[in-house]
Design a protein around this nucleic acid. Structure first.
Lengths: 298, 298
DNA sequence: AAAAGCGATGCAAAAAATGCAGCGCTCTCC
DNA sequence: GGAGAGCGCTGCATTTTTTGCATCGCTTTT
């Protein structure tokens, strides 16, 4: 859209950190770009960039403006998709940020099911830790987020919450495999693997051990749940994950057992959107479906 | 703002009903305006006007687009006001649509009180019946609405509700003036004046008589509560109004008495904004103050 | 002290928007 | 039922706006 060109330029300058660099990136001369920004600042009524010796940086007014711009660009896309809807051609694109746990089983199944009914709808799925997922919503890069135990929740409007008890993953020959549920201290007595600090599972484990005298002494920590799960096969260790990321019916040398809720409470897997935002039709409908499925899981 | 010029033109065409007329109104040639619209439709990806033999009319896509445009223009104003805030100069402008009842006593007092603390803030106050007030919000022409018994409530987000019992207004020498509260049937036995159909007070009276066998046979109906109140002085009749529009301490030949809630329930005076909208700082703060005052009234 | 990188600006060239005149069309009015 | 008025649309010349180039003054880096 032509009338958003200036905003695109401003965003480019923000990202590049200097007008000249941004001009290079966007195939325009620095002078033209510079003057566009000056003209805009004049009619906007306030400077939006701080001029520093090595470039420029958005000032608070600029931050506010970028927020407005992102919201309005996103709303324009929503309008266009809505218009496409009513002109007959049923299309749409859904962007979704989610925790790793959703990647192997849950989301592929859900998306495939949705696409059976709406083959015109396409998807972007990105893996983000709980903090990045919230940022993803706030900057309008994603329509929806599905994350375990998000952090701030200020701009995160919860559409559905599902309690998820953390499970221990172990080999079938592990002594704990005999139990129906396992205690955290028993897990920590064995070699164990935990996620890195940015993950909700780790935060909950940390919180649980902080109450007792035990400490977490992992033989490895990783930001890949996949790695941890596979590692368990090689060394008889314990890994942790939430059940939605695990295929419980899997006939396999691995078994999973819930951690006792005496040791740590169930965390929440939350489906959410940017607070106050009106989602595009397709996204709203998909979210509705997800919410129903998630609600039925409990 | 330059980048909104096209939208202003589109709005002008929408209002004028034809490109040529709009071009006249806005000091531009019809050809230039025509081409602007065509260019826009092309990059938007859909026509937004229906071409009729005698002019043009927005099609559904155009309606959607106008909605987006109004929201975004309003949000831009909000951002600008916010920026003005943080650059020190405390300013702001609040637009408010309200029922007639608020005009004589309540709003002047509230606005004056607010301006004592924030002398830089200015106001636009427009009188609208309950339906028009809601439209006013939906089209972003007003930030806030304060109306008695609004109709649809789809886009109306209620910030505060205050029950208001309808009161009868009569001369001090009216026999009913002796009672603490009056019955509707007694009022209807006397000469009476009622508001016209678009008002909440009338709707509630109509509803009340519909349950019984009485009918409303007004000696006059009017869309001016002022007229009806003043008329009562001349002919010993009954008029109706909600208490917030009446000065109960007024030492005067008129007295007001509540209608019995056995005859009709209290209606609601609602303070509201456009659903989901983020108000400018000044408006939000004023609304907060109003809500507190209204809350204290019950 | 020199070099490199930055934003700003004067001026000419390029691009975009506008105005003018006129086309084809439909509806209205005598 | 034909003339006229009003409409949206378009080719072309003109005006306005935007861009590119060269360059200045400044600060930081080397």
């Amino acid at each position: 859209m032509k009338h958003l060109q200036t905003f695109r330029y401003i965003e480019g300058v923000m990202k590049a950190g200097s007008i000249r660099k941004a001009a290079d990136d966007m195939n325009i001369t620095a002078s033209a770009l510079n003057r566009r920004i000056q003209r805009f600042e004049e009619e906007f009524g306030s400077e939006i960039f701080e001029r520093l010796p090595r470039g420029v940086k958005l000032n608070p007014a600029g931050e506010l403006l970028m927020q407005h711009f992102r919201a309005q660009a996103s709303d324009l896309r929503r309008v266009q998709s809505h218009v496409a809807d009513l002109s007959g051609e049923r299309r749409g694109h859904i962007t979704l940020a989610c925790s790793q746990a959703l990647i192997p089983y849950f989301l592929p199944a859900q998306i495939a099911a949705y696409r059976r009914d709406h083959p015109g709808v396409t998807f972007s799925v990105v893996v983000r830790d709980r903090e990045a997922a919230e940022r993803e919503l706030a900057t309008f890069r994603s329509d929806l987020a599905l994350v375990f135990e998000p952090v701030h929740l200020v701009d995160f409007e919860v559409l559905m919450a599902v309690p998820q008890v953390i499970h221990a993953i172990m080999r079938r020959d592990n002594p704990l495999a005999a139990e129906r549920e396992v205690r955290l201290r028993d897990c920590l007595d064995q070699p164990h693997l935990v996620p890195t600090a940015q993950y909700g599972v780790r935060a909950m484990l940390d919180m649980a051990v902080a109450r007792g005298s035990r400490t977490i002494r992992p033989i490895a920590e990783s930001d890949s749940f996949d790695f941890m799960r596979h590692y368990v096969r090689h060394e008889n260790a314990i890994a942790f994950q939430i059940p939605i990321g695990l295929n419980v019916d899997e006939v396999d040398e691995l078994v999973i057992r819930p951690l006792s809720t005496r040791d740590l409470p169930a965390g929440n897997l939350l489906l959410g959107q940017m607070r106050g935002r009106t989602l595009p039709v397709a996204s709203a409908r998909f979210a509705q479906g997800l919410a129903r499925v998630l609600g039925d899981m409990t």
